[in-house]
Design a protein around this nucleic acid. Structure first.
Lengths: 127, 127
DNA sequence: CTCACAGGTTATCAAAAGGTAACTAGGGCA
DNA sequence: TGCCCTAGTTACCTTTTGATAACCTGTGAG
């Protein structure tokens, strides 16, 4: 993420080779983390995820699942039953990601009120 | 983040009261984390940040700093020198956030290659 | 033949994010 | 007076993200 130094301070990069940008730009969208944490509890099917994740549309669920699959976080398995059953599950990589996100989640839970009140104060004092 | 349970599986929310969404939607944009980790090394000035964070424009730097300030992660101090000096520094809240992001950063560094090769494989097999 | 079900895809559109470039403000300096 | 500095703001435009809603596919049941 950071590379050279320049008068004592690090210089930060933002290109496609930056690991943290590659991870955060995937996981930082509207739905990825919700899907990830749903799947932490075990493999699940398309329609079940759609029900569990409130407000997600069919289109965004498909699309986000494809993106997670692409990065190797999620496996997609088709069972040729009838009607067809498609199951999604975390890969070891996806489980590792979820674990390393957990600290952030618990921090967010703990400090949520602080953030919200900072936001209110800022909005009161400014625009 | 998750609330009720429904046949054994948690149901996930995505509204404005969800702590993790409130944090991630702020920090998951293109520049916030780079600014955050720049400021971990100590307070810094507008133009110094602009130099250190490669590719950021004046407009996006101002805007992202304002958003970070709004959520209480960053303090902005104006020194009425000449020419004016404006220093940005992490608040304790911002330092806490950076710390809890660190695990994610090191995970990303460790598994970057894995992600990139998963991506290549997916793109080869599919579109 | 028609309907239902799971798991999608496609078209269309609105909103948000982000980039470029020009302009501004408040001073000091020559 | 004109030019430079820092630290912005503004206008304009393009790209990306996401929402809605309609359509499709394969299969079995009635």
């Amino acid at each position: 993420m950071s590379t050279k130094t320049k008068n004592g301070k690090r210089v930060f990069l933002q290109n496609e080779d930056c690991p943290i940008r590659n991870v955060v730009s995937q996981v930082g969208d509207k739905w990825s983390m919700l899907i990830l944490f749903s799947l932490v509890e075990g493999p699940d099917r398309f329609n079940s995820l759609k029900t569990r994740i409130e407000g997600i549309s069919q289109r965004m669920l498909t699309q986000t699942l494809r993106d997670l699959e692409r990065d190797g976080y999620v496996n997609r398995t088709v069972y040729p039953e009838v009607p067809v059953k498609v199951e999604y599950e975390l890969t070891p990589l996806g489980e590792g990601l979820a674990k390393s996100l957990w600290k952030l989640v618990s921090w967010a839970n703990t400090h949520h009120d602080e953030i919200r009140s900072a936001r209110r104060e800022y909005d009161r004092d400014n625009g």
